[in-house]
């Protein structure tokens, strides 16, 4: 059970949240290859990962989390518009 600091509500147990993986904006123009990458390809790094979670059983807001996928240490969470590029 991870403990995730919702930027709106504070630290809460993982079971209150739903995972959103890497956020990828919709490409405006896309050939089949680009479209396929958008639909199906998401990052799966070993190490730090900037991912999204939503506080489903709380404030229902999406936010970003920077988590190490090898140790599960969460180094930062924050509002979506403050997510590092």
């Amino acid at each position: 059970m991870l403990l995730i600091a919702c930027p709106y509500c504070g630290p809460r147990e993982e079971s209150e949240f739903r995972y959103g993986s890497e956020g990828v904006p919709i490409p405006s123009e896309a050939d089949d290859r680009t479209w396929a990458r958008f639909l199906y390809y998401r990052d799966s790094p070993a190490g730090l990962f900037t991912e999204r979670w939503v506080h489903t059983h709380g404030c229902r807001q999406w936010f970003y989390v920077i988590r190490d996928t090898l140790t599960h240490e969460i180094s930062a969470t924050g509002k979506l518009d403050e997510a590092p590029r």
Partner: peptide, 13 residues
Amino acid sequence: DNYVSYAQRGSFQ
């Protein structure tokens, strides 16, 4: 467990 991980462990719930 629905999150990317290479830790070979998951969540207790």
